[in-house]
Amino acid sequence: MERTLRWVPLVWPTMLLGIFFAVPFAIMVAVSLFHRQPGGFFEPGFELTHYRRFITPFFLERLGVTIGIAAAAAGAALAIAVPFTYLLTRARRRTQVAWLIVILSVLSLSEVIVGFGWSVLLSRTAGISNLLVALGLLEQPRPWYPSLYGMVTGLVYVTLPYAVLLLYPRFSRFDRQLLEAAETMGASAPRRFVTVFLPVMRPALIAALIMMFVFVLGAYVIPQVLGRSQHWTLAVLITDQALFQSNIPFAAAMAIFLLAVSLVLVWLVVRLTRRRGA
């Protein structure tokens, strides 16, 4: 009796995670195989129609755009995050805490607010181009969005804080003695960073890059606010199919696809970092 009672506290979490997380996912998998009722919802069935649409040019083009954009944004964010985090972990503790608050605030900022902020920054009437006109670098102010560059800038902005938080624990546990050894042997600071620090951190950097890639795959608002419709990513397409084209089975099939891709990538990260830990 007492042994059974001991597990009572786990009933609540099991119920909630089961009913409101596991069950919805199971239903979603089932629905991706259901038959679509045009104009309405769906009816039970078993067909691979929705998965077959993956090999149409329509879907492949979206997929290509999504991968390209996610890779570009993740790569750029990593390039900024690596030197920044490296310096951050070497700063004083108080400086670190202050930066972490800024980083966390930006990370938790709604994608909508970020999108809005950048749309103002890139706008003709209030944006950066006015600054360039004032400096005499530009003839007259112009709008810089919607555009591919504007959108990628926005995506780098949301990914950068995530990148810093992914790298921060690894970088702060880095063995300083390696750098000190290099210093006594006469290596300059940039040289120590490139020839000692980066090679040691390589697995962590690749792992972070993959996690960031998955993170950008989820972007939904920024492509719509800052990009053109031809730059819209899979996440936008899924929502559009589910809510506005009422093609829920196809949306579900795409979500399962995105899920599978993300899981494989995360699994890769786990393998990559585990081998290093061993």
Binding site: V214, G218, T239, A252, L259
Partner: peptide, 12 residues
């Protein structure tokens, strides 16, 4: 995971 996956799961 990308949050849109959860969103669609909850919607369905």
């Amino acid at each position: 995971l990308p949050p849109v996956i959860c969103g669609l799961g909850f919607l369905i």
